[in-house]
């Protein structure tokens, strides 16, 4: 579509303005995290350029975080997210592959069931599930933190859509060559499916990284707290060290940001699959 030069300038200015406005709080958090303790306030009233330029600061807030419960939380968050990706894919991949390539009676019913159940919002049933976990002796355990995130119908859906796009001739050729179903999946299909695996993996990761209600209910002892809970607890202490809150917030933000930097394309493509074809 052709556009006048003036139009391009106006639209570009609008896009830059929107991007800066959305990004500004994150940047402000980063700069404030380099101001020891609550000293960021000195740059706020009146607002100084030092509130947005990270010069003259130090990393005391970050070293302060390292000696507290936040470090344990961060370790737990990584552990739980890593287990969720590995086990979540191990469950979703075979399920999606069976749905995409095996013609068996009741397949339509099973697929509909998975899609419908995937639409039950997890947080709505988190509270009843947490009382069940108490009965099942799973509260306050890593298993308790990981298990609910493994039931991810959207990951199955995304992988199935991708597997459907792999040409049937390729799978038949593998079969003719005497490759079994599992070997075909492992040696032929999975190497072709990196974008979908990354997309589904990101969905599993973010579902865990962003969780708050469930880890609050289940990871009750300090040794099993996840990072967002540990950070929120820091913010409700009698004397709040906002510098540490800034630093912790920035750490929890930069980690998924870096992952998205690499995998944004695969992740957003997987997301759009769930939105448009569902």
């Amino acid at each position: 579509m052709r556009r006048s030069r003036g139009g391009t300038v106006v639209l570009t200015a609008a896009a830059i303005l929107a991007a800066l406005a959305v990004f500004l709080p994150v940047w402000w958090v980063f700069v404030s995290s380099t101001r020891p303790g609550n000293s960021y306030v000195e740059n706020m009233t009146p607002l100084s350029w030092l509130a947005f330029v990270p010069v003259g600061g130090d990393l005391t807030n970050y070293s302060g975080l390292l000696s507290g419960p936040f470090l344990t939380g961060l370790f737990n968050s990584f552990l739980v997210a890593g287990l969720t990706i590995a086990l979540g894919l191990a469950i979703a991949v075979p399920a999606a592959y069976a749905l995409a390539t095996i013609d068996f009676p009741g397949r339509g019913v099973v697929f509909t069931f998975i899609v419908v159940v995937a639409m039950i919002p997890f947080d709505a049933i988190a509270i009843p599930l947490s009382s069940l976990f108490q009965d099942w002796h799973l509260s306050d355990s890593y298993a308790g933190l990981v298990l609910p995130a493994l039931a991810n119908g959207f990951a199955i859906f995304v992988l199935r859509q991708f597997f459907l796009g792999i040409p049937a001739e390729l799978l038949e050729a593998a079969e003719v060559d005497g490759l079994g179903r599992i070997a075909t999946l492992w040696r032929i299909v999975l190497p072709l499916s990196k974008p979908a695996l990354i997309g589904a993996g990101m969905m599993l990761f973010l579902s865990q990284w962003q969780a708050y209600l469930w880890p609050l209910l289940i990871g009750t002892s300090p040794e099993r707290q996840l990072a967002p809970i540990a950070l929120a607890n820091l913010s409700t202490l009698f004397t709040v060290d906002l510098g540490q809150i800034f630093a912790g917030s920035f750490v929890l933000t930069i980690i998924p940001m870096v992952l998205l930097l690499f995998f944004q394309k695969q992740y957003t493509e997987s997301l759009s699959t769930t939105g448009l074809k569902g």
């Binding site: 959305v22 709080p25 969780a211 800034f246 917030s249 940001m257 998205l260």
Partner: peptide, 26 residues
């Protein structure tokens, strides 16, 4: 435009609890 789009997308990666903490300080 890809850069501007990514900057607008960034908050989507921030955990809800951290969104709350960032804005409570802001």
């Amino acid at each position: 435009v890809g850069l501007w789009r990514s900057m607008i997308f960034v908050p989507a990666a921030v955990p809800g609890a951290v969104v709350a903490l960032i804005w409570s300080t802001a």
